[in-house]
Structures are given as structure tokens and as C-alpha cells.
Nucleic acid binder design. Structure first.
Length: 427
RNA sequence: GGUGGGGUUCCCGAGUGGCCAAAGGGAUCAGACUGUAAAUCUGACGCGCAAGCUUCGGUGGUUCGAAUCCACCUCCCACCA
């Protein structure tokens, strides 16, 4: 029997990672032995985003404490679409696309949990495997019969949708809850899985699964939900001006990822350390104390960005992000060597190459995506928001060519305080 | 299938023949102040240097002129069956 860390629940609570759980005392006792738990991830895009980071890391926390995590990829549920707390019915994606996404998610999810020869080695499962061959009649008789529609419409997760004027819900989405419940029951049967974790919006779906498992297998299983990550200013966590922060480095570079965390607000950063890092409570308290005592910029954002970037992108990814950050925010651009700039290019700094012999500043801004239109580009220049290689440029008609660049090859374009682009002239 | 109500610029939401590129709010962006914060203040926020051009679910029509009127289509919602 694997040794189990019985402090796990206390640690999760200290971190604020417990939103709700079913029968807390029984669960605490249940977790005194190594158990199997699962969390589902639906393929709603070709990558997970940082919204899934909390559950992924909690799976890891459970595994470190000696439990066996199952990462469920929703090949079946992803075809339906979870209506929980969604304001509108969603468009269905094609089967082909969903299947591609399933493969990507499998790979992504695997990076957060350990696969080894231990009894609590992680596994990735796909609910399509046990759903695809269930025919409608069997499903309705064996599964659907256990659900009461009047109970289902009482669930908070769909209630507001039903109450909301101008919106409705299709039977397809309404049935999602049943599918997810079936997963839990099935995983209990196959793996003796006795705990499901998920975001707070999953409470209704999880309790549905607990009920079904009890009815089908006369077994007590548990649910635990994690808090929704919120920001103190009320804006949505995980979005920036440039969009969603993805876990896939091809969609959000390590540098952009690192930058996201370093821009965390003071009011949020200490909570984020608890959510997203594995630092001990003493370490985190020490950081907070020191920041309070010190004047000026706190260190917490740096610690957070470093820890999370390393968790998601590994040591190499972190170093790449740090090199770019260092060069852009604390170094003198003009002192970078040609090699340094090459490295930034390789590290994934936003960059492009041009073959033109010369370009106006306006064109450079638009081509690099730093300005959406010529008009905006002009406005930025007029506002004194643009600099090239560290020098402010306020001339709307400015023109550049390769010889005006660093090492006759590179222009570092900066718009505003934080957005950079590396333009490289093709020889 | 029937009846009624809707689809406005990123979002919410005004606008029911010209004064409408379209109120207001939110989000977002830039500048100042700062710590690559917060708060605050200023400005921008369809495209175009401009003249002007392209938008209000789609297509056609009425009109000197349409987001606004008409026809058809399409999608959504509610109720009834």
C-alpha cells in the first residue's frame, strides 16, 4: 500500500482550493488510503488554457499525496457541450475537429501527472471509449431512468439559462449532465474511482454522477470542487488584451505566458501563489511579509511567473522567457549583440521578417500586428507611444531600412509599455 | 405546425424615414503618474492623411434619401399544439 499524505485536504484548504465537497468527514477518512480520482477536460479548443491549470495542478497534488489520478478527456462529452453556467447554447463542432483536439489534450494533460510503475501511476482515459457503443435505448433505460427531470431543472447550472429571456436549452445540452454522470459511474466500475474533482461550475454534474453511482453500484463516491479563479478588479481571469492564455506554447509563447503572470495585480498575486505553485505555506507567508516591508515593486509576481512558467513549459521554456524579459525590460536594447537578438528570435519573441528595402513606421506597426490599422498606427505614433530600438519616434512619416537597424538587421519595435516586436530584414 | 417577440458596431443596449458611423454603459488601447501595479486624470475606440467610403441577420424592393417602410429568406426566443 502506498504511503498517503493525510495532510492533503488541509493543504488544499490552506490554499483556498476547496470550494465545496460532499460529506467532508467521510471524505477525509476515505482519503486516508490511496484512492483513485478523476477530473474531466473537454475538447473545446485545440489546447487547454490556464483555466484548466487549477484542476490539473490539483490532480498533481493528489498524486503527490499518494493517490491515483485519471485525466479524462471528453471525446464524448465534447461532442455535446456542457451547458453549465453558459449563457447560450453553443454550436457543435465537427467530429473530425473534436477528434484532433482530443489527441492534443491527451498530450497536454499528460505533462502534469506522472506515469510510472507505481500503483498510483496516472492514466489518461477517454469517455468516448465507453460511450460510443451504448445504444440509445440502453442508455435511456439503464442510465436515463435514474434521473428526474424535475431535479435536473432545479440545478443551478442550468436554471439561469432556463430563466433567462431570449435563451433556451436544447435537449442535447440538457442531457450533458447525464453523460458526465455516466462517466463517473463507469470509472467507478472500471477503476474503482471514488472521487471526482472539477471547477465550481461542475458541482451539479458531479453530484449527478455521485447519485448515479450510488443507484447503479450501491457505492458511495465523493466530489470536490475547486474555486473559480477571480481577479480583484472583477475582470475575467485568463484573458489579456491579446486574448486567452493557452498552455500550448505554439498558441501562447513562453514569454507571453511569463508576462501574463508577472502582470498579476498585487491584490491577487498572493492568492495565485497558493493556487498555482507548490511552495509551502511558510515560503509564501515569508514572501508576503517581505513585500509588505519593502518599498516599491513586490517580488511575488516574479516568483509566481517563474514557478508557473516552469511548471507548464519546463526549465528551458522558463529560461527563454526570462531572456526575452530581461532584454526588453531591463537591458539596454542597443547593447544587445547580434547573437543576443538571434537568441530572442529563437526564444519565441514576437517577430517577423521582411524583404522590403524600406518601410514606413506606420507599415511596420501594422505589419507586426502592433497596430490594427494605419489609423491606429498614426495615433500611437502621435501619442508618443512608439519606440524603435529604444528610441521614441514621434514622426508619423518616419521611414526605416535595414541599415538603420541594430547590426543592420534588427528593429525592436515597441508600442505602449509592454508590447514588443522584433523585425528582421532579409539580407 | 400555429401565434407572438426578436437578430444594431467587441459585449450589453438606445435608435422606428434625413440632424446616424449610429446615444449610453462596459470592455479594450494610448498618454501622464508609477513598480512592466492599483487608483486617478486626459485622449482614442468601423476604414481612410483627407475628400470620402463601407456597416445595423441575408436578398430584393419602395423612396430624392432606409438601421428605420415593404416582400421573401434565414437564425433565435416564448407560448400553444
Amino acid at each position: 500500500m502506498t504511503a498517503v499524505d493525510t495532510n492533503l485536504l488541509a493543504d488544499l484548504q490552506m490554499r483556498g482550493l476547496v470550494n465545496q465537497m460532499t460529506s467532508p468527514e467521510d471524505l477525509a477518512q476515505h482519503l486516508e488510503q490511496s484512492r483513485v480520482l478523476y477530473c474531466g477536460f473537454d475538447p473545446t479548443a485545440d489546447s487547454l488554457h490556464i483555466g484548466s491549470l487549477v484542476p490539473l495542478l490539483v490532480l498533481r497534488r493528489f498524486q503527490q499525496a499518494g493517490h491515483k489520478p485519471l485525466a479524462l478527456v471528453g471525446g464524448a462529452t465534447g461532442m455535446i457541450g456542457d451547458p453549465s453556467f453558459k449563457a447560450q447554447e453553443r454550436k457543435l463542432n465537427t467530429v473530425d475537429i473534436i477528434n484532433q483536439w482530443v489527441d492534443r489534450l491527451k498530450a497536454q494533460v499528460s505533462a502534469f501527472i506522472e506515469f510510472n510503475d507505481q500503483p498510483h501511476s496516472a492514466e489518461v482515459v477517454n469517455n468516448y471509449d465507453w460511450t460510443k457503443d451504448v445504444d440509445v435505448l440502453t442508455f435511456l433505460r439503464d442510465v436515463g431512468k435514474h434521473f428526474s427531470v424535475s431535479a435536473m431543472i432545479q440545478k443551478e447550472s442550468v436554471k439561469q439559462r432556463l430563466d433567462r429571456d431570449g435563451e433556451g436549452i436544447s435537449f442535447t445540452e440538457f442531457a450533458y449532465m447525464i453523460l458526465q454522470s455516466f462517466d463517473f459511474s463507469e470509472l467507478y466500475k472500471q477503476y474503482h474511482c471514488s472521487l471526482q474533482i472539477g471547477g465550481s461550475d461542475q458541482w451539479g454534474n458531479i453530484t449527478g454522477g455521485i447519485d448515479l453511482t450510488r443507484r447503479q453500484h450501491r457505492a458511495q463516491v465523493f466530489g470536490l470542487t475547486l474555486p473559480l479563479v477571480t481577479k480583484s478588479d472583477g475582470t475575467k481571469f485568463g484573458k489579456t488584451e491579446s486574448g486567452t492564455i493557452w498552455l500550448d506554447a505554439k498558441k501562447t509563447s513562453q514569454y507571453a505566458f511569463y508576462q501574463f503572470w508577472i502582470n498579476s495585480a498585487d491584490a491577487d498575486v498572493y492568492q495565485f501563489l497558493r493556487y498555482f505553485t507548490f511552495l509551502s505555506e511558510t515560503q509564501m507567508v515569508a514572501i508576503e511579509e517581505q513585500d509588505k516591508a519593502a518599498q516599491g515593486r513586490p517580488q511575488a509576481q516574479g516568483v509566481l511567473a517563474t514557478e508557473v512558467t516552469r511548471l507548464v513549459h519546463g526549465e528551458e521554456g522558463l529560461q527563454a522567457a526570462l531572456r526575452i524579459t530581461e532584454a526588453l525590460f531591463s537591458g539596454q536594447l542597443s547593447q544587445l549583440t547580434s547573437g543576443d537578438l538571434q537568441q530572442l528570435y529563437l526564444d519565441g519573441m514576437p517577430a517577423s521578417t521582411t524583404c522590403e528595402s524600406e518601410l514606413t513606421l506606420v507599415q511596420m506597426l501594422v505589419d507586426s500586428g502592433l497596430a490594427k490599422s494605419n489609423k491606429m498606427a498614426r495615433e500611437f505614433i502621435g501619442n508618443n507611444a512608439v519606440s524603435i530600438n529604444g528610441e521614441k519616434v514621434s514622426d508619423v512619416d518616419a521611414v526605416f531600412n535595414s541599415t538603420s537597424g541594430l547590426h543592420k538587421e534588427f528593429h525592436v519595435i515597441k508600442r505602449g509599455k509592454k508590447l514588443f516586436h522584433l523585425l528582421r530584414w532579409q539580407a
